[in-house]
Computed example of a mutant assay.
Amino acid sequence: MPHRNLLSPLPPAGPEEHFEPLLSRPGLRIERIVSHRHASPPGFWYEQADDEWVMLAQGSAELEFDDGEHLALTPGDWLLIPAGRRHRVAATGPDTVWLAIHMAL
């Protein structure tokens, strides 16, 4: 079984967030997301078909929801984003690491 560290090594900063699959099974996908001061493009909303449980492991981030809710996240914060709930990444700090678990309905 592979042994790795969620926080190291981190990919270098680039123009896009870095999405890395960690585990995939039918109905389940776990990924590491690394952000370096990234945000969703203006007017862009995620609207996913699956529930997403996300935890901020390192750094800082702010999520925005289409109902006007804003949520500032610090390391250790987690939430469940239900399928179909429109959201976007409003801001992230440097070296921000997320753990995301996508679960099919």
Rank of each mutant, 00 (worst) to 15 (best):
P2G: 00
H3V: 09
R4M: 10
R4V: 08
N5V: 07
S8A: 15
P9E: 04
P11F: 02
A13K: 08
P15W: 03
E16H: 09
E16V: 01
E16A: 12
E16L: 11
E17C: 04
H18W: 04
H18L: 08
H18G: 01
F19S: 07
F19W: 08
E20M: 11
E20T: 05
E20V: 03
E20G: 01
S24I: 01
P26I: 05
R29E: 12
R29M: 12
E31C: 02
R32D: 10
S35R: 02
S35C: 14
R37W: 09
R37C: 01
H38E: 03
A39G: 01
P41V: 06
P41Q: 10
P42Q: 08
P42V: 02
F44W: 02
W45Y: 11
E47K: 15
E47S: 14
E47I: 00
A49Y: 07
A49C: 12
A49W: 10
D50N: 12
D51A: 00
E52Y: 07
E52G: 04
W53T: 07
W53C: 06
W53I: 04
L56K: 00
Q58W: 11
S60K: 06
A61R: 02
D66A: 14
D67A: 08
G68R: 12
E69Q: 15
H70C: 15
L71I: 12
L71N: 05
L73P: 01
T74Q: 08
T74P: 07
P75F: 04
P75K: 13
D77G: 13
D77E: 14
W78Y: 15
W78G: 14
W78D: 14
L80S: 10
I81E: 05
P82W: 06
A83Y: 09
G84V: 06
H87V: 12
H87Y: 09
H87R: 05
V89T: 01
A90S: 12
G93N: 07
G93W: 11
P94E: 14
D95V: 09
T96N: 07
V97G: 05
V97W: 00
W98R: 06
L99I: 15
A100C: 06
A100E: 06
I101T: 07
H102T: 09
H102D: 12
M103F: 06
A104G: 14
